[in-house]
Amino acid sequence: MNKQKTPKFKAEFLAPRYWGTLIIIGIMYLLSLLPFRVQLSLGSGIGRIAMRLMKKRQVTIKRNLELCFPGMSAQEREAILKDNIDNAGIALFETAMAWFWSDKRVNKHVTIEGMEHIEALEKQGKGALMLAVHSMNLELGARAFGIKKSGMGVYRPNNNPCFDYFQYQGRSRSNRTLIDRKNVKAMLNALNTGERVWYAPDHDYGTRRSTFAPLFAVKRACTTTGTSLLVDATDCAIVPFTMVRGDNGHYTLTISEPVEGFPKNDPDQAAVFVNKIVEKSILASPSQYMWLHRRFKTRPDGECCLYKPRLAPAI
């Protein structure tokens, strides 16, 4: 197994080149101390301001909603877009909550349903692939779960080593460790030894280890075959979970029963299967999903980019 390198704090992080990063981390910590309702209100405002400055991101959100929900009225999509912009700002605070809140404060704001499914797998000594989607509050969901049952998260190390250190510390606060997304051997070892591994197969990761499968109204969405690789090699359980912030501001993390009928040794059909799970998770709260990611940027050979509306072919 490839050894997992844990980021360490270095004296060089105090150099001027990293002062900006340290200031950002300091601000995140201070923001996490504010009353919860104040954080939500400030987050919404920051989201709206940020999207005015990053108009391309707003265009991406709008386009993704058009592609996924063509049968939805323009007014309905616009409502989701506006809420999504608010939630993008709140996500900054939710990340700070996940990294800096005490266990007691996290437990106060998050209710977990379905933990009995995890306990049953634990008694069997069976590994669990915790299938997530990139909801805006995923960081807080992982932290809340980790307080009850630790696991291992799959992540991409940040190119800024100073930020990567704080990111690692925050994300592993209530979990056992993090695994570099390129370290497949470490994921397989964890699952084979009965561990829980957080895994989000919902983004477009490019053509390597991928296939094209339907996702909502898009018939050919580039989908990672990593789920097949992990399940086929370990016979682990697949456990979907969702994290939703209700209208009252309280979060509910729902752990579903392990799914059945996963197409073994068939990456193409498995991608179709996984995308159905992804769809259900997103629909739990569409406005809290990370629509600002260009989910359909990778196209089959010969197809035009879907993010150029005038050139986009019918799907």
Rank of each mutant, 00 (worst) to 15 (best):
A11M: 11
A11E: 10
F13M: 07
L14C: 04
T21A: 10
G26V: 02
F36W: 12
G43H: 00
I49A: 11
M51K: 04
L53W: 02
K56N: 14
V59G: 11
I61G: 08
R63F: 00
L65H: 02
L67D: 05
L67W: 03
C68A: 10
G71L: 11
S73A: 03
A74N: 10
Q75D: 12
Q75S: 09
E78H: 08
K82M: 13
I85H: 06
D86T: 04
D86V: 03
G89N: 04
F93N: 07
F93A: 13
T95I: 13
A96L: 03
M97C: 11
W99N: 11
W99L: 07
D103R: 15
K104Y: 05
K104E: 14
R105H: 13
V106W: 08
V106I: 15
H117V: 13
E122F: 10
K123L: 14
K126D: 13
G127N: 14
A128V: 13
L131K: 05
E139D: 15
E139R: 07
A142W: 08
A144G: 11
I147R: 08
S150E: 15
M152P: 02
P157S: 10
F166D: 08
Q169D: 05
G170Y: 05
R176H: 11
R181K: 13
N183G: 07
A186S: 12
A190R: 04
N192H: 06
G194D: 03
Y199H: 05
A200P: 02
T211M: 01
R220G: 04
A221E: 01
C222W: 02
T223M: 01
T223A: 02
T227M: 01
T227R: 00
S228A: 05
A233D: 02
T234I: 03
C236V: 05
A237L: 01
P240A: 03
V244M: 01
Y251H: 15
T252D: 07
T254N: 13
S256M: 12
Q269I: 00
A270F: 01
V272G: 01
V272A: 00
K276N: 04
S281E: 14
Q288M: 07
Y289F: 15
Y289G: 06
H293W: 09
H293M: 06
T298L: 09
T298G: 08
T298S: 14
R299K: 11
G302D: 14
C305Q: 12
P313K: 15
